[in-house]
Simulated scan of single mutants.
Amino acid sequence: MAETTLGEVMAELAGLEDPKAREVNGRHGDDHGVNLGKLRALAKRLKTQQELARRLWETDDTAAKLLAILICRPKAFERDELDGMLRKARTPKVHDWLVNYVVKKNPHAEELRLAWSDDPDPAAASAGWALTAERVAKQPGGLDLAGLLDIIEAEMKDAPDRLQWAMNACLAQIGIEHAEHRARAIDIGERLAVLKDYPTSPGCTSPFAPIWINEMVGRRHEK
């Protein structure tokens, strides 16, 4: 299937359209009707095809964009290309997958993190904070963690939803990974009460930072 055309793939995506999947996805702000398991199976069959991925992205169809993310080569994109893609991501799932599956694996990730973190566009800023949370957990050297907590304390409460979620994840990662900042991170979470009442399924960890921090730290101590 190495020579699959854009038209063939779009036809296959259309054939996977499921009204029930569209309804479920719609509840999360995603405007497509393809089951993600079936989308991943299609991507596995297509394997990596960078040019096809670029053409799928250009269709501006949400399912096609998600498929493009799954079959692309993350390291093949230039910095400005990724910046433009992020600004056209539109739906939450496309935004999330683009940041996690592509940008984080790209050589320009740190440059984009710095550029996006204070971008006036909340969607771009949230991507910057998601990349910062990743660095807090995996490569904290050079980060001003106290300074990040200052910004979170001042801005998270009134931030737009997607940006608030990313800042909250960064707050939690600081508390989980860095014991010297844990008490302050928990205190900020308690006072701001962001996501305190977020509905959490049984067996899942609450995104409310104090609960999230304590649960993850507790698990490590159990090992």
Rank of each mutant, 00 (worst) to 15 (best):
C72M: 13
L52T: 08
Q173F: 00
G189I: 00
G203P: 02
I151S: 05
R79S: 07
P140G: 05
Y198M: 05
H95P: 03
D96W: 00
V9C: 12
A64K: 13
R220S: 03
L36F: 11
L131V: 04
A169T: 10
A125N: 03
C72F: 11
W116P: 00
H221Q: 14
D187S: 09
D118H: 15
L171D: 00
D118M: 15
E78C: 07
D197L: 04
P107Y: 06
L192T: 10
K47Q: 13
K105R: 07
R90L: 14
E3N: 14
P140C: 03
R40L: 10
V136G: 07
P74R: 12
A169F: 10
V136R: 00
P207F: 06
D83F: 09
L46P: 08
V9T: 13
V102P: 01
R40F: 11
L39S: 07
K38I: 06
M1I: 12
H178E: 03
K75L: 09
D80C: 11
V34N: 00
W165R: 15
L56E: 05
L67V: 07
R45T: 10
A146L: 04
L39R: 10
L42A: 10
I69V: 12
D119W: 04
R87P: 08
W116S: 02
W129L: 10
E78R: 10
R27M: 15
T59A: 04
L148R: 01
H28P: 07
A53Q: 09
R45Q: 12
K93N: 15
P92S: 04
A209G: 09
A68N: 06
R87G: 12
E3M: 15
D187Q: 12
G175S: 02
V9P: 08
R55T: 12
F208Y: 07
T59S: 10
W116H: 01
R162P: 03
R73E: 10
L70E: 13
P207I: 11
I69N: 00
K47I: 05
P210D: 15
A137D: 03
V102A: 01
R219Y: 10
C170N: 01
L56A: 11
A130H: 08
K44D: 05
R219W: 07
K20C: 05
A76Q: 11
I211Y: 01
W97C: 07
K105W: 06
K65N: 13
P92H: 11
A68Q: 03
M216H: 08
A127K: 09
G37Q: 10
G147S: 01
T62Q: 12
D121V: 12
A115E: 03
D61F: 02
K20T: 09
D18P: 13
V217N: 01
